[in-house]
Design a protein around this nucleic acid. Structure first.
Lengths: 257, 257
DNA sequence: TGCGTTTCTCAGGGAAATCACAGGTTGCCG
DNA sequence: CGGCAACCTGTGATTTCCCTGAGAAACGCA
């Protein structure tokens, strides 16, 4: 769907050999993202996940470094922890904005600080996620920001399609063969992950790492449980699209094949 | 979109991928707005929000800078704080008018300011909002000013329509299926925000940031409360148009789908 | 100033979502 | 074909999120 870009416009999405759809900048170069957090484990985690998206990543551990890196790296988006050691989050934001007036920012905040100093942060089209976050959530939000900022293709749609199954990332609507399907937040994220990797086996560990928060300490069989939920809603009485590869994981693919 | 413009009027709106309608100038370039305020946090907030509308923004912190910037930037509209450090608001206005005789001005005033003087000023087609303002209010007023000044767009754009629900931004009239509905000021702004982003999930944070004043420090559940009020007036006994996406936010869409 | 309207806080109720647990089922291997 | 591991799914406890009534405070208008 997305890969069937019209010829007259320079292609701004491309489909990787594995079937993944990636965002690209107008000139065809990879999207650039700057990650700013003082916890090394977080920047590492994010860098890895975002690189996996095919993006080019730099990271910084404090406000000073963030501004410096932004100046020469000129990212298309920034992931910014609001709690930095050397300066207040809003100060960093201000200095970043002086360097890159139009760059969209995804804020990371502690859950209990949500009310605290979040006010106004989404007003300019920016967005935020609370710690602990899931990687799928961060990636999805970033994709949304980049898409809307115009740094990448305007036509890269917010709708994922696999066979007769569609998932709209803006309206959070899912339908199969025209029938609307209501999903819970977790079901939605799981399905989005599957649909962003069609025909590709995803292990339970991978799924846990991407769809659940990084601090999730529960049983690994939640994945089985949620796959079960999804099947009930999506495959119920139809040709199944979600398949188990015993000992390997799960995959989704169009029913007809 | 642009190429399909009617012959007599050049196209002046375009629809973004998200379904949002943007104002454009007759030649297709973005609308230009100059923001003048001495508080940095205010100019930053406004710049961010107005840029998100797709407009081109410059800002100034005092009257001298305002006049200078206006001279070379030649904005289509000006947002002007009446309390500037270096000169009286009226003086700034006069000098701006010498540069740009026809540019519409949106005044920012403190709530307790002498309203009769402002009222006199707005007789010429200008407008004003009192601090603390909500971003939806500023954006709406600016859109109105720009529309009426003829710098962009045809007149018909002041009515938002979603399904059988209509909202007139000029007369503040709302009706569903022919029935007139009375809304309070806050309800109206909330509904306008929803209707300007149909079929799109808006988080409570986004709604708070846009619809409530920037200094609102209250509980986030006012949003829930006002959604509740809106439902009572708009969805009462009808097919619901306002939907909750648990854990994500709210969205409005035509009843039939 | 007084009264109706609007905005907002607070708190209880209730529904939905998440997840652990455990027993049942399936597929694979020897 | 038996046994084991991997997987599926029903049940229900717990938590989270949302809705809304009641009333206090602020506002606006006469």
């Amino acid at each position: 769907m997305l890969s069937a870009a019209p010829a007259k416009v320079s292609a701004m999405t491309t489909t990787s050999p594995q079937g993944r759809t990636e965002l690209l900048r107008p000139d065809g170069s990879p999207v650039r993202v700057l990650v700013v957090d003082d916890e090394l484990s977080i920047t590492e985690l994010l860098s890895m996940a975002l690189r996996y998206e095919g993006w080019q990543i730099r990271s910084a551990g404090d406000g000073t470094g963030a501004v410096q890196t932004a100046r020469e790296f000129r990212p298309d988006a920034v992931v910014l922890d609001m709690m930095l050691p050397d300066m207040d989050g809003l100060t960093v934001l201000g200095r970043l904005r002086r360097e890159l007036p139009d760059v969209p920012v995804l804020f990371l905040t502690a859950k209990d600080a949500v009310e605290d100093r979040i006010a106004g942060l989404t007003a300019g089209g920016d967005d935020y996620v609370t710690k602990p976050f899931s990687l799928e959530e961060v990636v999805a939000r970033l994709r949304g920001l980049i898409r809307r900022s115009g740094a990448a293709d305007r036509r890269s749609e917010s709708v994922l399609v696999v066979g007769d199954l569609t998932l709209d990332e803006d309206s959070h609507e899912v339908s199969r063969g025209g029938d609307n399907i209501h999903l819970t937040a977790t079901e939605f994220e799981l399905l989005r992950f599957l649909m962003r990797n069609p025909r590709r086996v995803l292990s339970k560990a991978q799924i846990l790492d991407r769809v659940w928060s990084y601090d999730f300490g529960g049983q690994a069989n939640v994945v089985e449980l949620y796959i079960s939920y999804l099947r009930r809603k999506i495959d119920a009485g139809r040709e199944p699209m979600i398949h188990t590869r015993r000992g390997a994981g799960y995959l989704i693919k169009p029913a007809t094949s």
